[in-house]
Design a binder for these strands. Structure first.
Length: 487
RNA sequence: GGUCCUAUCGACUAACGGUUAGGUCACCAGCCUUUCACGCUGGCAGUAGGGGUUCGAAUCCCCUUAGGAUCACCA
């Protein structure tokens, strides 16, 4: 059988990380088996229309490196790939069920349904539609139904779930799932505005798009029996199902927009690297071996195995994501990093730096940060003399005799014609050997005078970056302020 | 509340009847070192509980407990 899978998001205006994981697994599964991966937009809810939502979805998916074989923009022989353009198809099959006696008209208002649920809740038990007590073609009979229809009364079409028996289906991840028919609700198939609900549209489309495997989030598991029943009603083959474990927040509840970031674009905006993010997401719910963390997309495709995906939900751990990002940041090429860092520097008000200089900054700091965006703040002393000096650092590293110790070294450094890492290093080393002191004793005072903080790149790299003239200025200014008792 | 799903270190996971239950994040210690990081080494820490089945159970079955999802004219 040809593998054909689909990612079928509704255009809500943003791509949820859980959605990205679902799209990714569909993609990996299709590529792994030489099949096709389809993008279908499920926009049957007219009340939730969001401007540019589809474009946003596609853009974020593309960012993540997920390519579709058939989609709205790419086309394909099973289109259209947007449900609102397939309207007639759903109507046709909704009506077919009606004719077969597997669906019925219902005229209940939302108030009546609300009252029904209220009643059912008081009686204890499920909230499913009470077919035999409500206003529908079953209780009303043909004549009254026809009269209501002719008079223009609003109606929906509900599926008629068998009273007895059970629905069984096999889930690749969970194994066999069985639900008694009496617990399956008479789901609305066609809404009063004529649009289909997810359930009908999804089944019809998956059938006509010849989808072989339905890979989706676990939240769909409870409604899968309805879908299976629909396939049976139509006499169609049922695709294989795979319900992915949910992505959880730190309180172990479904990751939702209420608590923190869940949109892919939020993570992009924070500066997460694409490969790191995808790598991290891929390993939420599955790991090919358990003794390795870094995988390229090609390796993920090669190793992917749907049947080994976890059953239990996975907590989305930002700390591990940060670590992952840093791993990729360390390996990022300077050429790729420079444009990004340049923008970050400009945002921080630092402009007019040469690319070569920015490249050096990146190389010196990529192992000290999680995000490129952290670099400007961390390196602020490179662009202007420090205005503040860490008090604890100064107290610890600047003693009464430090000024006298440091002056002759500064004197010596000022004679250097070249001010590079090597020349400043050699000069300082020779000075220390002559004077019989350890380099460590001078490094801290130099760092303090130059940067004002205890953390940063190597001292000689830093001096080379700042440049001779500016270094000497900072030395003398610091010493002067010390003498004047300002520091 | 009904139904369904799930249960290995704090977190992500490996072990698909036989391992001293492994790796990673986080945390702690040490090493490296001119600081901070990176890196390296080590440590802490887990099969929810109870019954079975079996020579042998984290693994299969049952019960309990706990978590989650879902029960819209949303997807």
């Amino acid at each position: 059988m040809d593998v054909r899978v689909r990612f079928a998001p509704s255009p809500t205006g943003y791509l949820h990380v859980g959605g990205l994981r679902t799209a990714l697994y569909n993609y990996l599964f299709a590529r792994k088996h030489g099949g096709k991966c389809i993008l279908r937009i499920e926009d049957t809810d007219r009340t939730r229309f969001v401007e540019n939502a589809t474009e946003n979805l596609i853009e974020n998916l593309r960012w993540a490196g997920i390519e579709f074989d058939e989609s709205l923009e790419k086309g394909g022989e099973f289109g259209p790939y947007v449900q609102s353009e397939r309207f007639d198809l759903y109507t046709k099959y909704g009506l077919e069920l009606l004719e077969k006696g597997l669906a019925y008209y219902a005229f209940d208002t939302s108030e009546e349904l609300e009252a029904m649920r209220q009643r059912l809740q008081e009686e204890g038990g499920s909230f499913k539609y009470d077919r035999n007590k409500m206003r529908n073609s079953i209780t009303l009979g043909n004549e009254e139904t026809k009269r209501l229809l002719d008079s223009g009364e609003k109606y929906v079409i509900r599926m008629k779930v068998p009273e007895d028996g059970e629905v069984k289906f096999n889930d690749i991840i969970r194994g066999e799932v069985t639900v008694p028919c009496k617990d399956v609700d008479d789901q609305i198939l066609l809404k009063s505005d004529g649009f289909p609900t997810y359930h009908l549209a999804n089944v019809v489309d998956d059938h006509f798009m010849q989808i072989s495997h339905v890979i989706r989030g676990e939240e769909w598991l409870p409604s899968t029996p309805k879908h299976v029943l629909l396939y049976q009603f139509f006499g169609w083959d049922t695709p294989d199902f795979a319900h992915l474990p949910l992505l959880l927040n730190d309180k172990k509840a479904k990751l939702s927009k209420r608590h923190g970031d869940v949109a892919v674009e939020d993570f992009r905006a924070k500066g997460y690297l694409k490969d790191a993010f995808v790598n991290f997401i891929a390993l939420l719910g599955w790991n090919p071996t358990g003794d390795r963390e870094i995988y390229s997309m090609e390796e993920l495709i090669d190793l992917f195995d749907l049947s080994k995906v976890n059953k239990a939900g996975a907590v989305f751990d930002l700390k591990k994501l940060a670590w992952m990002n840093q791993q990729y940041l360390k390996e990022l090429s300077t050429a790729e990093a420079v444009p990004v860092l340049k923008v970050e520097l400009e945002k921080a008000g630092v402009a007019n730096l040469r690319d070569e200089y920015i490249g050096k900054i990146f190389e010196l700091f990529k192992e000290r940060v999680t995000f490129i965006g952290e670099i400007p703040e961390m390196t602020n002393y490179l662009y202007a003399a420090p205005s503040e000096f860490e008090e604890a650092y100064m107290a610890k590293r600047w003693k009464a005799d430090t000024a006298d110790l440091v002056r002759p070294l500064i004197e010596k450094l000022s004679t250097l014609s070249e001010f590079t890492h090597d020349s400043t290093h050699d000069c300082t080393k020779a000075f220390c050997e002559e004077a019989g002191i350890k380099m460590g004793e001078l490094m801290h005072p130099l760092r303090l005078m130059l940067t004002g903080k205890s953390a940063g790149a190597g001292m000689f790299d830093t001096m080379a970056l700042i440049g001779k003239e500016e270094c000497l200025n900072r030395f003398s200014s610091f010493l002067a302020r010390k003498e004047a008792g300002e520091l």
